[in-house]
Simulated assay, not measured.
Amino acid sequence: MAMTILVGCGSSSEAESTSIIDSYEESETESAALEHNASWMAGNWGITQRVDGGYKLDKSAGSSNWQAGAEEIVANIPAASYVITSFTHPAHGHLFTLRTNNNVDVSAIHPDMVPSIENEQIILDVINIYRAAGKKVILYLNSAGPSMAEERGDTDIQTAWDSYYTNEWDGDEAAAWRNLAKGYVERFDGLVDGYWLDNSRNLPGEVSDFVAMLRSVDPDLAIAINYNQHYFTDDLGDYLYVDSDGVDDQDDTAYKIVKHVITNEYMDFTNGHITPLGRGAPPNSWAYEEYTIPDMIETPWDTYDQSKYALKHGWFPIRNSWSSSRAELMFDVEQAYRFVRTITDGGAAMTWSTTQDDGYMTADEMDIMIEINDRMTQSPKPDYSVYERPEGAYLVSEIE
């Protein structure tokens, strides 16, 4: 039957940030999606504010003001309905934003794994600033945990961790890591709405067990799992490769085009990771506009095994780096607005991987976000510029 459905962001200002999807035929997929953990993300967009962890937080806390940065985001970007911030330091599963743990004295394993008791208040303040503004909060959690500390240059922490789980957990690293992580998840309970699990390929133990641990604390968490990327293929099953991004393309590396797919029965929304930047793919690739985004909005809710549905979500670095404020800014206002409108109009979700200087979003990124916010809050919303493939851009298969 034809019907009108309101999908809210779940905030105190729900009436202002509600997406309206009208006049379509309800399907089993859409019906299931309305009751799903990630329903509040559907048709919405968010930004990223990373907070340092462990000894890195203690080093940067004197020069950075993440609380003021969060307040600036709240004041300038009310249309962004959620924020991704930090459980662990970016790409460091052994450095935590909280100090005190419900289950284990992490500082006794190694003091550099945690910040001071004063500095752990930073992440709690940041979260509460967003919650008070009606924004949802997702935490980035490097699910490899302390098992890769040495690869990040922290050999002493690796040695201490190996000794801890060997002696205290009879060598069961997976159980030790779940116990440690749960002690922090319990402290975040009631403050956050979801988790973005990074590096799950290197998670000690099974993803199913780790997700079960999270859900034992809060069954309504929205969870994404960064594992097992998929890419577009042609009719013969061969990968499509972008050969050129335009006449000014200086990188001759051909790259695959990411496709956001529900890869397991545990996720509630796709991780949205783009084709890795190191493979020559810019975060604003024209191929995302011709392949990735149309696929997201064609079926914004999809399923792995018919047991549950998950939302297609994209996480796009606004620079040619996930977190470095010194990297090249890749989006202009028009393309950035088009990304937000096409994805959210189609009922999927997207997050900007915005960067910080001293706890604040960089000024050039903030200018873009403010313009997007202003357009998204107008009624009717201004039209976005029509996509056109850049001159000189083509696939490998188009020149053979």
Rank of each mutant, 00 (worst) to 15 (best):
V247E: 15
S63D: 11
A144M: 12
R99L: 07
R326C: 05
C9K: 11
V217W: 11
Y255A: 07
T97I: 09
Y227E: 13
S163I: 10
D238H: 12
S17W: 15
Y291F: 06
Q67F: 07
Y387D: 03
D112M: 01
E388A: 14
V51A: 04
T85N: 07
P219H: 08
I223W: 10
I20W: 07
Y304F: 15
N284P: 03
G69S: 00
Y227F: 15
E328N: 14
Q121K: 11
H230M: 09
S385N: 13
A42E: 05
W161T: 06
K381Q: 15
I225K: 03
D374G: 04
V83W: 00
E334I: 06
D243R: 13
A160M: 13
V51P: 03
T275F: 03
F232E: 04
D302P: 01
I223Q: 06
I122E: 11
S13C: 14
W196S: 00
G69I: 02
D252Q: 10
V261F: 10
Y165V: 10
N142V: 10
A32G: 07
H110S: 08
S17Y: 15
A132M: 11
M350V: 00
P300V: 07
D58L: 09
G205H: 09
D156C: 00
D245F: 06
I370H: 04
A144L: 03
N128Y: 08
T275R: 09
S200H: 01
N142E: 13
E150V: 13
P282Y: 00
L197H: 08
W45Y: 05
T100W: 09
F269R: 04
Q356P: 10
W40V: 02
G205D: 10
K381D: 07
P78A: 06
G134S: 10
P283L: 01
D358I: 02
A133D: 12
T29W: 08
T362G: 05
D357C: 05
T29N: 06
R50N: 10
N284C: 01
E28I: 14
P390Q: 06
G359H: 00
P219S: 14
A175N: 11
D268M: 08
S39V: 15
I318C: 02
D374W: 06
